[in-house]
Design a protein around this nucleic acid. Structure first.
Length: 476
RNA sequence: CGGAGUGUGGCGCAGCCCGGUUAGCGCACUAGUCUGGGGGACUAGGGGUCGCGGGUUCGAAUCCCGCCACUCCGACCA
């Protein structure tokens, strides 16, 4: 056998191994990011009974109590299994909608060279919020607070013609901003997970089309997360540019005051069949026509002139995303040039689009909770169903619970089976706290009539039914 | 960055002003018994360099100095 043939053989064998491993993982259900169903006795769910004193805001308290996160330093958190699961579900929705809108995922590093940021002048401009690091060769580096500079560097290395445009590239990566005062748990950490997308177009008109794409994708992302998000005209801050919208979700405990026209709240969300290559002007127009502003840019006179009294909404909100059009702010100094149809090179026209993924987890809780704890929307619930075996050790309760657990698991439902030998009260409190959308309560009382109880966390509604009916409820 | 405050078993706290036995309480944890539909009861246990460094003193969780970390209120940000 020739050496080339031998190498090809090894390559083929490796390929076979990769494929067969993937198939095996798919078959036993561990494929992709979705983690399997769990028995609570084998899980890692460190519930706190008392609220840690440092947590002032509700979502922060609930995340600590529900064993979702652990603080490792100011504004820096470890994501424990339950929290990580939610984070992954949010991430996945963001990813799906970006992909649907035609954006292309890549992954840039967290550490960047200072020299790159010197090209745009941002190394000095960014200030103490930027975490600066030196490597062993005394090379100046930084932990990326955002990626405009790097993506522009990547873009300019490869793309030189208008014929390759438009392009929207994005990644979902940890960022670090050395906030003066981190607070509110993951809502305003120093380290945070962000989806940031960057668009590249030949001219302003095309760039505005990309902007609208991302705008519409954002409407869909927040809607799928079960959140009411309102786009609001915004300042551009250190990113720069002259067109920007913040996406604010309404929550009683939000950081900023929000003023808007009630009609915005009833605008329809584009469905998943939306044609992103089609005309999006009317959708964006509908969403930006009516008055909507946060208190820092609020114009009372205009609000009262444009909005009839009965439609004036004054609420609190949390910023969960922002879109920017910034033209040639980065491409010009970095010489990211593309040739147009006329053969003349010009700076590529850009925009950037951020979603605070880890912040969203906190925001989701701010918008979905009650006195007893979290209430997850179905789309991001860490488990769809929790089974509470009220009398572990009792033959009938054990058998019924296991039957349910097995059937739901087999049907691909993400289910958490509470098989701990504890009193019912503790189990109810815990399930309410962690906020799974549905609880199946299995105990001797119900089983005496051959029934289990299904409780809907959000409404508190309870229903007795047979095990078969219960399984059908979630799988049918 | 201005202002305020806190560091004592895993969590919540007391003790500190006014120095003095083996540093205490609740929860959690371990073993056992009874229990069992909204965070159970009893019994017996285990676990702490009192943030770090220095000083004063016969003696420091406690007084003094320095440092570090964290939190809260305000101005700023996905």
């Amino acid at each position: 056998m020739t050496e080339t043939g031998f190498r090809a053989g090894i390559l083929l064998f490796r390929l076979f191994k990769i494929v067969s491993t993937a198939v095996a993982r798919y078959v036993d259900g561990t494929f992709s990011n979705l983690q399997p169903s769990m028995r609570l006795s084998r899980y890692f769910l460190p519930i706190l009974r008392e609220t840690p004193k440092e947590a002032e805001i509700l979502s922060h308290r609930l995340m600590l109590r529900a064993g979702m996160i652990r603080q490792e330093a100011a504004g820096i958190y470890a994501w424990l299994p339950l929290g990580f699961k939610v984070l992954q579900k949010v991430t996945e929705i963001v990813r799906e909608e970006m992909d649907r809108a035609g954006a292309i995922e890549l992954l840039m590093p967290t550490l960047q060279l200072a020299d790159l940021w010197r090209e745009t002048g941002r190394y000095d401009a960014y200030g103490p919020e930027m975490l600066r690091i030196k490597d062993r060769h005394e090379r100046e580096m930084l932990y990326g607070p955002t990626n405009e500079d790097m993506i522009t560097e990547i873009f300019r290395a490869y793309v030189h013609s208008y014929r390759e445009l438009p392009k929207i590239l994005y990644h979902i990566q940890w960022k670090f901003r050395d906030e003066q005062r981190p607070r509110f748990g993951v809502m305003r950490g120093r380290e945070f997970l962000m989806k940031d997308a960057y668009s590249f177009d030949i001219d302003e008109e095309a760039a505005r089309r990309s902007y609208r794409r991302m705008f519409v994708a954002y409407l869909r992302i927040f809607d799928r997360l079960g959140l009411k998000a309102i786009p609001m005209r915004a300042e551009t801050g250190p990113i720069g540019g002259n067109l920007s919208h913040e996406f604010i979700i309404l929550a009683e405990t939000g950081e900023s005051g929000v003023y808007c026209d009630a009609d915005i709240l009833d605008l329809p969300i584009p469905d998943e069949l939306i044609d992103y290559d089609g005309a999006l002007e009317s959708i964006v127009g509908d969403w930006t026509r009516l008055y909507a502003a946060t208190d820092d840019v609020h114009d009372l006179a205009r609000f009262e002139r444009e909005t009839p009294p009965e439609r004036r909404v004054r609420k609190r909100g949390i910023e969960v995303g922002q879109v920017f059009y910034f033209g040639d702010k980065y491409s010009k100094p970095m010489r990211a040039l593309v040739a147009g149809p006329d053969g003349v090179e010009r700076p590529v026209i850009g925009g950037s689009y951020g979603v605070g993924v880890s912040r969203l987890v906190g925001a989701l809780i701010e918008a979905n909770h009650d006195e007893a704890g979290i209430i997850w929307p179905d789309s991001v619930a860490p488990f769809a169903v929790g089974i509470a075996n009220l009398k572990v050790g009792d033959a009938a309760s054990d058998a019924a619970s296991l039957k349910l657990y097995g059937a739901l698991k087999k049907a691909g439902i993400d289910v958490l089976y509470d098989d701990l030998d504890e009193r019912p009260g503790a189990k109810f409190a815990r399930l309410d706290l962690i906020g799974l959308p549905y609880q199946v309560i299995v105990g001797p009382k119900g089983l005496a009539e051959g029934k289990v109880e299904i409780k809907t966390r959000r409404t508190g509604a309870r229903e007795m039914m047979s095990i078969g009916e219960a399984v059908a409820r979630f799988t049918g």
